[in-house]
Design a protein around this nucleic acid. Structure first.
Lengths: 132, 132
DNA sequence: GTCCCTGCAAATCCTTTGCACTCCT
DNA sequence: AGGAGTGCAAAGGATTTGCAGGGAC
């Protein structure tokens, strides 16, 4: 069993992630945290984020843009990724077919979880294009 | 419009990918190709793979293991990723609910495609565990 | 001859890690 | 005091890129 000790940096990372809805990367989070802790290092941000993932307090996912994104919402949900601006929007489970519907006898093994993301263009980017 | 010129290396990369069903990374492909072209460079493999993706002849996807995988099958399908051995298995669309069912009016934009992969344990790894 | 493609190596991007020091408990 | 956590900088892995030479057309 792992022994945890309090750290102001970890607390700040958790708070910062909780107050954002943009699924930041470690680096984006690092830039925010630096306003409160100018000396925090990127290594510390990565170490704490990975620790929080292990503890199940946050989740980490990739959407194909080359870096990992972090999310304070650990409930099952999906993501919509805008091809144009890169924005990632949460999609509640209710928007998609019931999870259990995915699993059939044809599955070549036992699937516990699945990761899903949609690619497309968000409403904001679509409107910008119409104007020009 | 882009002008293409024949290259034996690109041809070999296409053939190699066509004959494999394991969704190799650029590096794995590089190791195979080197048997035929001992002097080929990894940079050439990456350049050609990205070119083929642009041309729509192959697809590229991430499954969260830190590197990109390439697939000669461009038809819509899904992937099953074994947590234990890392194997990636193709899942035909028929196994999963109709694609159009994913898209509803609630979608915060227009989704053209989606990427889906399941995590779990493949039958082979499950059997190995039972034996020990 | 032109210009695309190659091999090579250096560069870049993202993430992890080793180490000496700091701060919880 | 003991050990988890930190900052820093170096290392690591994956991918891209600049450049000079080679090959397709």
């Amino acid at each position: 069993m792992r022994t945890l000790k309090y750290s102001r940096q970890r607390e700040s990372i958790k708070n910062c992630l909780m107050n954002r809805t943009d699924h930041p990367t470690a680096d984006a989070l690092y830039l925010s945290i630096r306003e409160e802790f100018p000396n925090i290092s990127l290594g510390t941000v990565y170490r704490n984020l990975n620790l929080l993932v292990e503890l199940g307090e946050i989740i980490k996912f990739t959407c194909g843009d080359g870096s990992e994104h972090f999310d304070f919402t650990t409930d099952q949900h999906y993501h919509f990724v805008c091809r144009t601006c890169g924005k990632i929007i949460d999609l509640p489970v209710s928007m998609v077919r019931s999870t259990s519907d995915f699993f059939t006898e044809e599955m070549p093994g036992h699937a516990e979880t699945h990761a899903l993301f949609f690619y497309g263009e968000c409403n904001h980017c679509m409107e910008s294009k119409l104007e020009s």
